[in-house]
């Protein structure tokens, strides 16, 4: 089994006094696609935001390539090669489509991704490059959000519910693009409500329930009953 590049050890996360994650242990290996599933409010977004540095944690609870980053600033984490496609896309409304992509390339890491490659992946974006990002359809905005993260040439990319609010055909298109994205040795963490999709694209899956890991296993080995139990806590 390849070395883990990202390790969470007993990760706790808080919003003020409210604790959202309890002792989460998790590993992502080099080149692996990991899925995280769980009901609404289980803590999936909190987990990704903790890794990205948007939520402060204890330093030792998150290690990335041997460095403790639990309390690192988000811009530092980004420079180290972690990128996130945030829930709800969250493009910069005052930036054009191309500017959104270019600002993703600001971290200036070496790698295969650049404007040309993103436009090859999502040709529609090249046609719309001068438009305000807010003028695009939801699916196109999601493409910009993905392209923006890729422009950083990350080693690990995190997707937070990329299919949320999109039409099924669009979701199919976006998932069709995924192998081309993570095939190049990039690791990925995919948070997804659609369990079938999540299991299909990932090699391992974690299920969160009320801030705790309730299931961990190989995506092709977990049963529907296990997942149902892990999801809702029903016996």
């Amino acid at each position: 089994m390849p070395e883990p590049i990202l390790t969470l050890t007993g990760l706790d996360a808080f919003y003020g006094d409210f604790q959202a994650l309890y002792g989460v242990d998790l590993e992502v290996s080099e080149g692996e696609v990991l899925a995280i599933i769980g009901a609404n409010g289980a803590g999936k977004t909190t987990l990704l935001r903790s890794i990205a540095g948007l939520i402060g944690n204890e330093a030792s609870q998150i290690t990335y390539r041997g460095r403790s980053i639990g309390n690192a600033r988000p811009d530092v984490v980004a420079q180290m090669g972690l990128a996130m496609v945030p829930e709800g896309r969250q493009l910069f409304p005052s930036l054009s489509v191309e500017e959104n992509l270019m600002i993703g390339g600001r971290v200036n890491r070496e790698g295969p991704w650049n404007l040309r490659k993103v436009y090859d992946l999502f040709p529609i974006l090249e046609e719309r490059k001068a438009q305000a990002s807010t003028s695009l359809s939801g699916g196109q905005q999601q493409m910009v959000a993905i392209g923006r993260a890729l422009m950083a040439n990350p080693d690990l990319i995190m997707f937070d519910e990329i299919s949320l609010g999109l039409a099924p055909v669009i979701i199919r298109d976006i998932y069709k693009a995924l192998p081309g994205i993570v095939g190049g040795g990039m690791s990925a963490v995919i948070v997804e409500q659609d369990i079938t999709k999540a299991l299909a694209v990932s090699s391992r899956v974690y299920c969160l329930q009320e801030g705790r890991v309730s299931l961990e296993g190989r995506s092709d080995a977990v049963s529907r009953e296990d997942i149902a139990r892990a999801y809702f806590g029903v016996e």
Binding site: R73, D75, A78, A152
Partner: peptide, 24 residues
């Protein structure tokens, strides 16, 4: 300019701007 882009991005959304490697 890239500086102006950083200004506008940070003004739009500080969290996401930081994910782009910008130290706000």
């Amino acid at each position: 300019t890239p500086l102006g882009r950083a200004f506008r991005a940070t003004s739009d959304n500080q969290d996401i701007a930081q994910l782009m490697g910008l130290n706000k």
